[in-house]
Design a protein around this nucleic acid. Structure first.
Lengths: 144, 144
DNA sequence: TCTTGATAGTTACATTTGCAACCAATAAAC
DNA sequence: GTTTATTGGTTGCAAATGTAACTATCAAGA
């Protein structure tokens, strides 16, 4: 055996974070997946468009830290499902401005509310201080 | 716009957790990937075998909460790379007892130490209380 | 103007994953 | 003792992901 036999996988922060992330996502994921057939990246894209009205794919990439191929595929999928449309930007035709359709906004409203409820449920038996500290630590680790 | 325009993706705990998990894993992942060509599940299996000497695949599944197909594939890969061997259990020939080879143990020792250093680095500018609380909250969310 | 280089986004391919069906060994039921 | 269920583990296939190469558009410099 090694010298530090006291260090377990459950003490390893990346492991803990992964398990917590996984556990915290499962339920909500089930919601948007079963109700709208959406993938996580699609939900994130919808979130950003709902929250910031219109954005280019690049802006979403930067803000949400998602790789551009993932965003590209999510956008294509969402377009196909009728949740968003692309608007040509005449000033620079490399960009595409993305906007939710009315249906896309409906979906956003539903998911936004659900996300909020879900978040509340996750922290419901933590104190305000614990919550704040948790979010602060996570943000620091994530370098947000 | 919706009523609660104050709730951003960065406030959504599952998102925060995912970003933090992702960020915290990248560096260490690079280490075992480039040095030993290992995948995350392989590292976790090696960890358990190094830590608990010998286990069956099922035990690893339960303890680390990894799906059996992932473990199965990781074990096959590790066997191929010469890090572990399977031992037949005569009492119940459905089980296979897994043990690290001497080389497997070398790898474990290296990674175990690296993991520990890495963990320390992650929490280096948190107070003891912050660390404890963080781990406690994560464990609770992960339901560990 | 003609190259050179960057930038936004897409596509192709290889690798990983998740799910369900599967096999083999044991245990339980009759 | 023979059928039936359960359990440990593997495999096959479809879906998801990462990487790198690609297209198209714009910008800068010679």
């Amino acid at each position: 055996m090694t010298k530090m036999a006291d260090f377990d996988l459950k003490d390893f922060l990346p492991y803990l974070l992964n398990q917590a992330a996984e556990a915290s996502s499962v339920e909500f994921q089930g919601y948007y997946k079963s109700k709208y057939g959406m993938l996580r990246t699609e939900w994130r894209v919808v979130f950003h468009l709902g929250r910031y009205d219109h954005m280019t794919a690049k802006e979403i990439c930067d803000r949400a830290r998602i790789h551009k191929t993932k965003v590209s595929r999510a956008v294509a999928e969402l377009e196909k499902k009728g949740l968003l449309i692309r608007r040509r930007v005449d000033k620079d035709r490399r960009h595409e401005d993305l906007v939710l359709t009315p249906y896309g906004r409906e979906v956003f409203d539903d998911l936004y509310g659900a996300a909020r409820d879900f978040d509340r449920k996750l922290v419901k038996d933590m104190t305000k201080e614990e919550q704040q500290l948790l979010r602060k630590c996570l943000a620091r680790i994530a370098d947000l």
